[in-house]
Design a protein around this nucleic acid. Structure first.
Length: 107
DNA sequence: AAATTGACGGTTA
DNA sequence: GTAACCGCCAATT
């Protein structure tokens, strides 16, 4: 694993930790917030290898279409449990729950 | 070394 | 509204 990429992963986790209950962020947004707009796929990789840390709400990360992670049905349940609503097509109602963060980030 | 693989995204049809 | 296409880039085959 590349050193810089490892650092990027850490930042991704840090950002993910700050997503409020009932809100979601997308892979692309997180990547951009971490300073690497083109690394959306690596955010996904970061989640895939993330330990089941209770301080890391990785279930609040969906793709830009509002779709939950493939191979992880439980994500839907977790989100619903904290008040996230889904549309009929099975996607998260981004209009309501996308976390609008304007820069910031201290670390 | 070359091709394939993703918890992805924006544009186009 | 959906589906296909192309760009992305380290890791894995």
């Amino acid at each position: 694993m590349d050193e810089a990429l490892q650092e990027f992963f850490e930042e991704v986790y840090e950002i993910t930790r700050q997503i409020p209950r009932g809100k979601v962020l997308t892979y692309g947004k997180i990547a951009a917030l971490a300073g690497r707009p083109q690394y959306a796929r690596w955010v996904g990789r970061a989640m895939a290898q993330s330990p089941n840390d209770d301080t890391l709400p990785c279930h609040r990360v969906v793709n830009s279409a509002g779709q939950t992670a493939p191979g992880w049905p439980g994500q839907r349940t977790l989100l619903k449990r904290e008040g996230v609503t889904f549309r009929v097509n099975g996607r998260v109602d981004m209009k309501k729950h996308l976390w609008e963060i304007l820069l910031v980030r201290e670390l």
